[in-house]
Computed example of a mutant assay.
Amino acid sequence: MTRILIVDDDHELRETIKEVIEQENFQATTAQNADEALALVQHDSFDLIILDMVMPGTDGMNAIPLLRRYSPGSRIVVITAFSTVQNAVQALRQGAHDYLSKPFTIETLLATIGKNLQEASFTDCAETLDSEDIFQGLANQLRRQIIFTLKQQGNMCFMELVRALAIEDHTKVNFHLKVLREAGFIEQDQKKCYILTSAGEKAASCLAFINKNLGLTD
């Protein structure tokens, strides 16, 4: 489940954002100041951090690089009632990914969250697939079909997989299974059935995400 941290000293706004986020089936955690947020990110991971700029103690601007240090994988969306181009540019230079000006609508908030989570997914997939070995492993269409089939069906023995792929040339399937095993995308269980490894699961999710968002078909 997507985890979002809301950091704002305004209790009412903080709880409103939390309620809105939870209605979208995200897991929301709140912090009333940046220092509390910094303590949280050292022990928990968050996909996105919504950060107020003006708070008692450590302010949002100074908190950005610290949050990036402790939680480098989190997207940071800064919110402030003092919206200026200079503040926005400075926040982005400090490491924030986006900027919202108070007051904002629920629709704008959710659109901003959705955009940043999508961008994070693209970045994560790019890092996952940005390897010559991984690229070679997924370059062939049949190998991608094998990964998608195992993702959808789960553990499958050789003949089950051949039938699902509707490939008459068993030698070809066996060859590509070997390539995927060597690339670390699949392995065999005690019954000699093929299953996706954690790398294979991630690759399957990334390929599905890219296909969906780019309108591609395999």
Rank of each mutant, 00 (worst) to 15 (best):
residue 2 T to W: 00
residue 20 V to C: 04
residue 23 Q to L: 06
residue 23 Q to N: 05
residue 25 N to H: 04
residue 28 A to Y: 00
residue 33 N to R: 01
residue 37 A to F: 02
residue 38 L to F: 09
residue 40 L to A: 08
residue 41 V to K: 05
residue 44 D to G: 07
residue 45 S to L: 06
residue 48 L to D: 00
residue 51 L to D: 04
residue 57 G to R: 02
residue 59 D to N: 07
residue 59 D to V: 04
residue 61 M to C: 02
residue 62 N to G: 03
residue 65 P to A: 03
residue 65 P to W: 09
residue 71 S to M: 01
residue 73 G to P: 04
residue 78 V to P: 02
residue 78 V to A: 05
residue 80 T to A: 05
residue 82 F to T: 11
residue 82 F to V: 13
residue 83 S to A: 15
residue 84 T to M: 04
residue 90 Q to S: 13
residue 91 A to P: 01
residue 92 L to Y: 00
residue 92 L to W: 01
residue 93 R to G: 11
residue 95 G to H: 03
residue 98 D to Y: 04
residue 101 S to Y: 09
residue 102 K to F: 03
residue 104 F to R: 11
residue 104 F to N: 12
residue 109 L to N: 11
residue 110 L to P: 09
residue 110 L to D: 07
residue 111 A to S: 15
residue 111 A to Y: 08
residue 114 G to L: 02
residue 118 Q to P: 00
residue 119 E to K: 13
residue 119 E to P: 05
residue 124 D to N: 11
residue 125 C to T: 06
residue 126 A to K: 12
residue 127 E to K: 08
residue 127 E to W: 06
residue 128 T to V: 10
residue 129 L to F: 09
residue 131 S to R: 13
residue 133 D to V: 14
residue 136 Q to A: 14
residue 136 Q to I: 03
residue 137 G to M: 02
residue 138 L to K: 02
residue 142 L to G: 05
residue 145 Q to T: 07
residue 145 Q to G: 05
residue 147 I to Q: 01
residue 147 I to Y: 00
residue 154 G to F: 06
residue 159 M to S: 15
residue 165 L to W: 05
residue 166 A to Q: 13
residue 166 A to T: 12
residue 168 E to S: 04
residue 172 K to P: 01
residue 173 V to W: 09
residue 174 N to T: 00
residue 175 F to D: 14
residue 175 F to M: 00
residue 176 H to T: 03
residue 180 L to E: 07
residue 184 G to L: 03
residue 185 F to N: 06
residue 193 C to M: 05
residue 198 S to D: 13
residue 199 A to E: 06
residue 202 K to S: 12
residue 202 K to E: 12
residue 203 A to L: 08
residue 204 A to H: 01
residue 208 A to M: 12
residue 209 F to V: 14
residue 209 F to A: 03
residue 213 N to F: 07
residue 214 L to H: 01
residue 216 L to K: 02
residue 217 T to L: 09
residue 218 D to P: 12
